[in-house]
Simulated assay, not measured.
Amino acid sequence: MRTPLAAFTVVAALSAALGAAAAATPAPPGSYLYIGWPNDGQVVSSGKPIRVWFGLRNMSVAPKGVKFPNTGHHHLLVDTDAPGPGVEIPNDRKHLHFGAGETETTLELPPGKHTLQLVMGDDQHFTFAPSVQSKKITITVK
């Protein structure tokens, strides 16, 4: 038997989820995010930092907290999947934030296969709707 409290909890959770999706920052038309380097399938040497270059078209980059139309900042995902639209991007070893407006970085990864993907976040680290994300690439560190 459902209690009024349980029904309220379900309604509140659904309302919050719908509200978050509705509040997502709209993605600029024609926005295109990509990893300029390394290339998909690239083999890189271990023991030295791997340079990752971020590419973006039809959108601008600004630091976290700076809110302008059609503007966001980069997040590099390492060995994980991209979050959906209107979702706050986690901040951990698999979700690297570039809230100062950086357009490249260097990584040190252990030997093996790794996936890399970029996702744009708005001024508060939320994904756009639809999500502005690059193709996921795979590199091998030897």
Rank of each mutant, 00 (worst) to 15 (best):
M1G: 13
R2F: 08
P4A: 09
A6K: 10
F8W: 10
S15A: 15
S15W: 13
A16D: 08
G19V: 02
G19M: 10
A20E: 13
A20N: 08
A20K: 09
A21E: 12
T25A: 04
Y32T: 01
L33A: 15
Y34Q: 06
G36V: 02
G36K: 12
N39A: 14
G41I: 06
P49H: 12
R51D: 09
G55R: 08
R57G: 01
R57I: 02
P63I: 12
P63Q: 11
K64G: 14
K67W: 07
T71S: 14
H73M: 04
H75L: 07
L77A: 04
V78Q: 07
G84N: 11
G86R: 07
P90W: 11
K94C: 02
H97D: 12
F98D: 06
G99M: 10
G99K: 08
G99F: 05
G101R: 03
G101V: 08
E104P: 00
E104C: 02
T106F: 05
L107S: 06
L109H: 03
K113T: 11
K113H: 11
H114C: 06
L116D: 10
V119R: 12
G121L: 10
D122P: 09
D122N: 14
T127H: 02
F128R: 03
F128G: 07
A129M: 01
Q133H: 04
S134V: 09
K135H: 13
K135L: 12
I137N: 05
I137L: 10
V141K: 02
